[in-house]
Simulated assay, not measured.
Amino acid sequence: MSENQALQMMAQLFWNSFLIAGPVLAATLVVGLLVSVFQVVTQLQEMSLSYVPKLAVAGIVIVLLAPWMLSRLTGFAASLFNSIPNLG
């Protein structure tokens, strides 16, 4: 296995992890910002108010995008397994 192949595999790994985790992180970021603005406007500083909506949105996004995430992950794993004979 050459250095270029290893670097290419690592780049694919990071890109796939970014694509899989990105929607969940983006959705929780948006909800966190909205809740923060709501807390500032209403001066309501309840700790559970910031965690519960983010957890709920993360769960909903994961449930909705789970088939796409799983197919992306299995496709990447299959491509890694298929590239094993060419590494030597």
Rank of each mutant, 00 (worst) to 15 (best):
I84Y: 13
V61M: 05
L80R: 15
L7F: 12
T74D: 07
L19E: 02
A56E: 01
P53G: 13
G32Q: 02
S71V: 07
L34E: 01
V40Q: 02
V37I: 13
V35E: 05
G88E: 06
G59E: 08
L13M: 08
A27I: 03
S71P: 05
Q43W: 07
M9Y: 07
V35S: 00
P85G: 11
L25S: 11
N86A: 15
L13K: 08
A26L: 12
A27M: 06
V57A: 04
L65C: 09
A78C: 11
K54A: 12
L70H: 14
A58C: 03
I60D: 00
V52P: 05
L64S: 13
Q43P: 08
P23K: 15
L33D: 04
V41G: 03
Q45D: 10
V52A: 10
M9N: 05
E3H: 09
S71C: 02
L19A: 08
G59W: 14
I20Y: 04
L34W: 01
A78T: 13
Q5M: 12
V30M: 11
F81T: 14
N82S: 07
Q12M: 14
T28D: 04
L64F: 11
V41H: 01
V37L: 12
L65G: 11
L73M: 10
Q5N: 13
T42V: 04
Q39S: 13
L29P: 02
L49C: 14
L80V: 15
E46M: 04
V24E: 03
N86G: 14
T42R: 07
A77S: 15
N86F: 12
S36M: 05
S79K: 04
L13G: 07
F81D: 07
G88C: 07
G59H: 08
A26D: 06
